[in-house]
Simulated scan of single mutants.
Amino acid sequence: MKEFGVLDHVDAVAVHGFPLDWNLWQIQEWPQKIGEIATVTDLPIWVSEVGVSTFGAEEIQVWGLKRTAELLLGNAPRIQWYSLYDLPREWEATTRHREAEGSSYYRHFHMGLLRQDGTPKPALEEFLRHTPAMGLVQWFHFEDPRLDDAVAWMKRLGVTNMRTGLSWADSFRPNALDWFDRQMEALADFDVTVTFCFTPQHRGMMPHHTSPPLVPEEFAEFCSTMIRRYAPGMTSASLPTQRASAA
């Protein structure tokens, strides 16, 4: 990114880490990982997704959250814990290979501080000790019935910043803007980091949500439209399409 000048057009570098579930490094290596990135950029380094599943035992999540807070608070200006809710078992986890990932796939369903039925796991109490310094990640599916309860929980926990997504694929659904408006209005009291994600099958080079777009400008226009709609305070020079033309 540095070689191609990408870092000249961003305000922070975001990293994810799940050393107790998916990464091939240990949890105590977090400061080293942050330090490695700091050697190539002076930008703030956000940990925009970090978490521990309860796939093996709920007690592991308690320990992992506490240790993560010890290692990261003070070393990264923004830390967002994944996630508030367990993914419902009736839904699919949006991953590259799904069930072919073996047990790695099923860990996606156990990342929440709340169980699928909304009851708290033991780690919720530990998380409460670290707000508002630690934020949350919560992905909302199209017309997600958990939205209002999630907002209530985040306010109760003292969360002030959170990360979620707006799906390019969902933008082709009927009434998509109504749902996007409802979601973003519900989250208006938080400092929200939005990820623009998920390629529509009919607009990808392959029919897959991770596919590069057939026409990159179409994805850029979706991003620009969402920024204009939900972050109108940004100057026109900050919009992706404007940056591209300036470059």
Rank of each mutant, 00 (worst) to 15 (best):
residue 202 H to W: 14
residue 183 Q to T: 10
residue 193 T to S: 08
residue 198 F to I: 02
residue 213 P to Y: 10
residue 217 E to Q: 10
residue 190 F to S: 04
residue 197 C to P: 00
residue 196 F to H: 15
residue 189 D to M: 10
residue 205 M to C: 07
residue 183 Q to K: 14
residue 200 P to N: 02
residue 191 D to N: 13
residue 193 T to G: 13
residue 193 T to R: 08
residue 214 L to E: 03
residue 217 E to F: 05
residue 184 M to N: 09
residue 204 G to R: 01
residue 191 D to C: 03
residue 201 Q to V: 07
residue 202 H to M: 08
residue 202 H to N: 13
residue 193 T to A: 13
residue 205 M to Q: 15
residue 185 E to L: 02
residue 216 P to Q: 01
residue 207 P to D: 06
residue 210 T to W: 15
residue 215 V to S: 06
residue 190 F to L: 05
residue 189 D to I: 04
residue 214 L to Y: 00
residue 186 A to Q: 07
residue 187 L to N: 01
residue 213 P to H: 06
residue 203 R to W: 09
residue 188 A to I: 01
residue 210 T to E: 13
residue 211 S to Q: 09
residue 194 V to F: 11
residue 215 V to A: 06
residue 206 M to Q: 15
residue 214 L to K: 10
residue 201 Q to L: 11
residue 211 S to P: 07
residue 200 P to Q: 01
residue 183 Q to V: 12
residue 183 Q to C: 04
residue 193 T to H: 13
residue 183 Q to L: 15
residue 193 T to E: 14
residue 196 F to W: 11
residue 214 L to S: 01
residue 185 E to Q: 11
residue 185 E to P: 00
residue 196 F to Y: 15
residue 188 A to K: 11
residue 183 Q to E: 12
residue 212 P to L: 07
residue 211 S to N: 11
residue 207 P to N: 10
residue 202 H to R: 08
residue 208 H to F: 12
residue 200 P to M: 01
residue 193 T to F: 13
residue 207 P to C: 07
residue 203 R to I: 00
residue 182 R to K: 12
residue 210 T to I: 12
residue 193 T to I: 09
residue 203 R to S: 07
residue 213 P to M: 05
residue 184 M to L: 12
residue 208 H to M: 09
residue 204 G to C: 04
residue 216 P to W: 00
residue 199 T to W: 10
residue 200 P to L: 00
residue 201 Q to H: 10
residue 203 R to G: 02
residue 207 P to Q: 05
residue 213 P to T: 04
residue 189 D to E: 12
residue 207 P to K: 08
